[in-house]
């Protein structure tokens, strides 16, 4: 009730139109539905669950950030996690390789079963875990070393022999579609690469140790559209050999690269389904609202 009008003794005017919030400027189209193409449709229904997350709860000191999240991460598929800012998707991602341990006062409850062991177990050797579950971050983080040394870093940590390092560095750079661009300057500083190249370097660095799972936290958000496209192609290609979990705020991206999608809101997993189903026939209203751009 607008009380301004009451001062003049008038009735407030009849509301004649509906006020809707501004739609989120989604990348491509005015059509609220998300178009799905390419990789998303290729799904192997017989896929094994690589990491089985059951009833995960997470606290930053006293504040709870994840509420009873359960989802299966399917082997050799891409699972996308979407949701508005602050919904917990990144927090959840980071629980999978125990990166949240770096923050004092955090607590995790629940289970995430990888090969029969619970990742969230306190006594787990996280250093060994992180050699099996790799991570690529939002912003490219090349070490102040040469390109070669960057990719070799994880291998040296594992004590790989010199000959094998040579082989694996080349293989990873090829896999990351970066080899041709850098093969003549492997010994030069990685900081001289462009943003997109640096991110592909970080991906090469992560896959050099042959992780079983690759976690990606908005890997293309800091890049220009062309570089983004390259990264997305890379992700689809990598999914043939690696299990990938990718957090993204870009729904189109999720639709383009993933086979399964989980939608997070306020720390809860609202819906999890094959990507095609989630985007074309969302079951929950919140999911539908988010996808059609009503918020976020």
């Amino acid at each position: 009730m607008d009380t301004r009008f009451n001062k003049f003794g008038k009735e407030p005017p009849a509301v004649e139109f509906e006020i809707t919030p501004m739609p989120k400027p989604v990348e491509s189209t005015h059509v609220p539905k998300v178009t799905i193409a390419g990789a998303a449709t290729v799904l192997n229904p017989e896929a094994v669950t690589k990491i089985d997350v059951r009833h995960a709860n997470f606290w930053y000191s006293a504040k709870q950030a994840l509420f009873d999240v359960s989802l299966p991460v399917r082997e050799k598929h891409v699972t996308a996690l979407i949701g508005p800012s602050g919904c917990g998707k990144t927090t959840f991602l980071r629980t999978l390789n125990r990166m949240n341990d770096l923050i004092p006062g955090t607590r995790t409850e629940g289970e995430a079963i990888l090969d029969g062991r619970n990742i969230y177990e306190k006594s787990l050797d996280v250093v060994a875990l992180r050699q099996r579950i790799g991570m690529v971050f939002q912003r490219p983080t090349p070490f102040p070393k040469s390109i070669f040394e960057n990719v070799a870093y994880g291998l040296r940590v594992q004590g790989t022999s010199r000959k094998r390092i040579q082989e694996r560095v080349e293989a990873s750079l090829r896999r990351a579609a970066l080899w041709d661009e850098v093969k003549d300057r492997l010994k030069t500083s990685a900081l001289g690469l462009s943003g997109g190249q640096q991110q592909r370097l970080c991906i090469a660095r992560a896959i050099a140790v042959n992780p079983e799972v690759l976690l990606m936290d908005e890997p293309a958000s800091a890049l220009d559209p062309i570089a983004t496209l390259k990264i997305e192609e890379l992700i689809v290609e990598l999914a043939k050999d690696y299990t990938i979990v990718i957090v993204t705020h870009n729904m189109q991206q999720a639709a383009r690269v993933s086979q399964y999608t989980g939608f997070f809101l306020n720390g809860k997993l609202i819906e999890y389904a094959p990507t095609v189903e989630l985007f074309e026939h969302p079951r929950k209203k919140e999911t539908e609202d988010y996808i059609s751009g009503r918020f976020g």
């Binding site: 060994a128 875990l129 070490f143 870093y153």
Partner: peptide, 9 residues
């Protein structure tokens, strides 16, 4: 973080 995520101590 990048270094730790690669399993370095």
């Amino acid at each position: 973080e990048a270094s730790l995520a690669l399993g370095a101590t």
